[in-house]
Write a protein that binds this DNA or RNA. Structure first.
Ligand code: MN
Ligand code: MN
Ligand code: ZN
Ligand code: ZN
Lengths: 145, 145
DNA sequence: TCTTAGATTGTAATATTTATAAATAGTGTA
DNA sequence: TACACTATTTATAAATATTACAATCTAAGA
């Protein structure tokens, strides 16, 4: 299953005229298999044994390329560094304010809100972002002690 | 009207045991009167004629204090610096992807989404954030040329 | 007025991300 | 397969935003 995703991703790069390098292959593979929301530095560290000479700029450059092609979404929060999510199905995120855990969360897209915003503001609306914040069950348990 | 908001804000600081300094007074006043979503540096620059010796650290420190007390909300986007919004009524934001303009936007809070997320993930949900992205009418017009 | 804990200031440090230029390598073509 | 062309990588420096720190100052209660 993840092999299929990787193959489709590589094909979509090829279709856009983006060269497939070993670094790109490895970053995509890591994003697909990790099933998480890693930072650029997470990816850099995870691949440094395989690519001891890879530059961190390469990770950033390729994540931008992947974002532009539509393969990954960039999740930006206030605090620290951006996180990257391999695009599969549309979903939202629930984030623990205590430990930082990010949980995927399926919910129908809020089309009404977009339409309403377009009408009220005159914007040409393209998309929205939403995140839900709280404490995960582990952290909530610890706090109650 | 803004005098009332300023007075209430100062009272709420006093109630929390936060000292009222000229710098804090000025930052709050600016946030309330600007009716916009300034960055820390916007505030710093706007007040430098009045406080030639004020440190940018003071602006950051106080914005954090105000956030902790609940007087301001910090809006963090990917690209540049954080923006700050004096808390009045609950509202969302519509953001122009081209020029960066931020427009306030009233919409009933998405309580259902929060409840659903809590049930599905087991989180103790506290709040959510949502922004709508698109192009404002001016930018959309320019692009069509 | 005096005292003192908290606030401000000036500066250095940290961290993330981007820019740059030289070296390298992927891919289409012959 | 070998070549040529150009995209990509690498290494490093730079830009930017934010925080840490220590010395100085001051708001506010006694
Ligand atoms: Mn996700
Ligand atoms: Mn606002
Ligand atoms: Zn947690
Ligand atoms: Zn615009």
């Amino acid at each position: 299953m993840s092999e299929v995703q990787l193959k489709e991703a590589l094909d979509s790069l090829k279709d856009t005229g983006v060269r497939i390098t070993p670094q790109r292959h490895a970053i995509l593979e890591y994003l697909i298999n990790s099933m998480s929301h890693p930072t650029a530095d997470d990816i850099y560290k995870a691949l440094e044994s395989k690519f001891p000479n890879m530059s961190v700029a390469t990770v950033y450059n390729n994540l931008r390329v992947f974002r532009e092609v539509g393969l990954v979404k960039e999740l930006t929060y206030g605090d620290s560094s951006a996180r990257f999510d391999f695009v599969t199905t549309n979903h939202y995120h629930v984030i623990c304010q205590t430990c930082g855990k990010i949980v995927d969360f399926d919910y129908p897209a809020l089309d009404e809100v977009e339409h309403f915003a377009a009408q009220v503001t005159g914007f040409n609306v393209s998309h929205h972002r939403m995140e839900i914040y709280g404490d995960c069950s582990e952290c909530a348990k610890k706090e109650s002690h």
